[in-house]
Simulated scan of single mutants.
Amino acid sequence: MNTPENSQMTVEEAEEYGRQMDAKNRALEKTHYLEESPIEEGKVTPPLSEEEIKKRTGAGNFDNVQDSGAMNSINS
């Protein structure tokens, strides 16, 4: 079979190539596992304290957000 990198394929070859790639992708999807264990259903982490937020974001960033009247970005 000619590969798409080397030459033009016939319709039949393109269909066969597509079926092979679909089968390969399905096989890879079935073997993909998360390295972390999933969170137990119903388990919710407690909210972060202000000190923990300051530690993670930096005190300057935390203070700037608290003092400014700007609306937070939806994506951040």
Rank of each mutant, 00 (worst) to 15 (best):
L28S: 13
N25F: 07
E41L: 15
T57E: 07
K24F: 09
Q20R: 14
G58H: 04
H32K: 14
N75M: 06
D63T: 04
L28H: 10
G18P: 00
E40V: 13
N64S: 12
A70L: 08
N64P: 00
N6L: 14
L48Y: 07
N2H: 05
E29T: 04
A70C: 05
N25I: 08
T10Q: 01
E13Y: 04
K43E: 10
P47F: 08
E13F: 05
D67W: 01
T10W: 03
E5Y: 01
G58D: 03
A14R: 03
E40S: 13
P38R: 11
D67C: 05
N75P: 00
T31F: 01
A27Y: 09
V44M: 06
I74V: 09
F62D: 00
E15N: 12
G42L: 01
N2F: 03
Q66A: 12
G60F: 00
E29K: 07
E51I: 11
E15H: 11
G58A: 02
G69C: 02
F62G: 00
E35K: 14
D22E: 07
K30I: 01
S49N: 02
P4K: 00
N2R: 14
T57D: 04
N75E: 08
A27N: 15
E50W: 09
Q8C: 11
N72I: 09
I74M: 04
E51V: 05
E12D: 08
I74N: 02
A59C: 00
E16D: 13
E29C: 09
E41K: 14
N72G: 14
H32L: 11
D67R: 08
P47H: 05
Q20F: 08
P38Q: 11
S49D: 01
L28Q: 15
E51A: 12
I39C: 08
L34Y: 05
Q66Y: 04
K54I: 10
N6P: 02
P46D: 03
Q66G: 07
E50Y: 07
S73W: 06
H32W: 06
P46F: 03
Q20T: 08
E52P: 10
G69M: 01
D22N: 10
E12A: 10
R56I: 01
E5W: 09
P4W: 02
K24P: 00
S76Y: 05
I39E: 07
E12Q: 13
E13K: 00
E51D: 15
S49C: 03
P4D: 06
V44L: 04
E12I: 07
P38A: 02
N25E: 11
M71A: 14
V65E: 02
R26T: 13
Y33T: 15
A27V: 12
M9W: 01
G18Y: 10
E41D: 06
E12C: 02
D63K: 05
T57S: 11
E5M: 08
T45A: 12
A27F: 06
S73V: 09
Q66C: 09
E35V: 12
E41P: 05
L48R: 02
S37C: 11
V44K: 01
T57F: 11
A14E: 00
R26M: 15
E13G: 05
E35R: 06
M71H: 07
S7D: 13
Y33H: 15
V65L: 13
N2C: 06
T31G: 08
S68H: 03
N75I: 04
H32A: 13
V65N: 04
